[in-house]
């Protein structure tokens, strides 16, 4: 077991890991379907589905963002191969979240939806986060990666902005009990902090080495 953690998994093992992660990512959806058929979605089922899909979108988003810090901390790289699938699952739950809002919550009443977005900063921020995930999902293929090259990296760093907007969207939803959004904000700060730290260290080291070379 430990050896498995130490060494990079083989190609075959990676395939299996991907299958397992794929199935695990489907559990939140299957749970909703199950609870729906059991008529067990609480007194306010629409709110429950909105909360649930929103939570899992944010959770998977944070999981996606954590892959690079894991590489920086441990030097392992194989987990990066899960990034696209996790990112797309995040987008999948975001879409379910939006569909629930537009269809079940507002019954396609576009006038009311427009008013809701315009008048409530909480909804506006969430809507902005959704809009930013669309180009990320559209450019997730290998061919787009090749086509965009360096710009692809820049574009996909936008995921941090999506995360910030999503957490603000959640923060403004809770009336007074901010513990949960605060927790996600802390996680995001730690993940971002690790990246900043390594970036700074790398620059620092390179500056040092050039200084040594100059001497």
């Amino acid at each position: 077991m430990l050896a498995f953690l130490k060494n990079s998994p083989s190609k075959k093992q990676i395939t299996w890991i991907k299958v397992i992660v794929f199935l695990v990512c489907l559990i939140p959806l299957l749970r909703l379907v199950w609870l729906g058929f059991a008529d067990n979605l609480t007194a306010n089922p629409i709110e429950f589905i909105e909360r649930s899909t929103g939570f899992w979108a944010l959770f998977i988003l944070l999981a996606t963002i954590s892959l690079t810090p894991i590489r920086l901390l441990t030097g392992r790289v194989w987990q990066i191969q899960l990034r696209r699938m996790l990112g797309l699952f995040m987008f999948f739950y975001v879409c379910l979240h939006i569909i629930t809002y537009v269809w079940l919550d507002f019954a396609f009443d576009w006038l009311d939806i427009t008013k809701d977005i315009a008048k409530h900063p909480r909804i506006l921020v969430g809507f902005a986060a959704f809009l930013l995930t669309v180009p990320l999902a559209l450019t997730s293929s290998n061919s787009m990666m090749k086509r965009l090259r360096e710009r692809w990296k820049q574009l996909h760093q936008m995921v941090y902005i999506v995360a910030i907007l999503a957490i603000v969207h959640f923060w403004w939803l809770v009336k007074k009990d901010i513990r949960e959004p605060l927790l996600y904000a802390c996680i995001l700060m730690v993940l971002f902090g690790i990246r900043i730290y390594y970036k700074y260290m790398k620059n620092h080291k390179s500056i040092n080495s050039t200084q040594i070379n100059n001497l």
Partner: peptide, 21 residues
């Protein structure tokens, strides 16, 4: 209007998934 929630319409609890507002 309230800064967080729509006040012009409401969801009646018990209406199910497709009752609308």
């Amino acid at each position: 209007e309230h800064p967080r929630w729509t006040q012009s319409s409401e969801k009646r609890i018990g209406g199910g998934l497709f009752a609308g507002r």
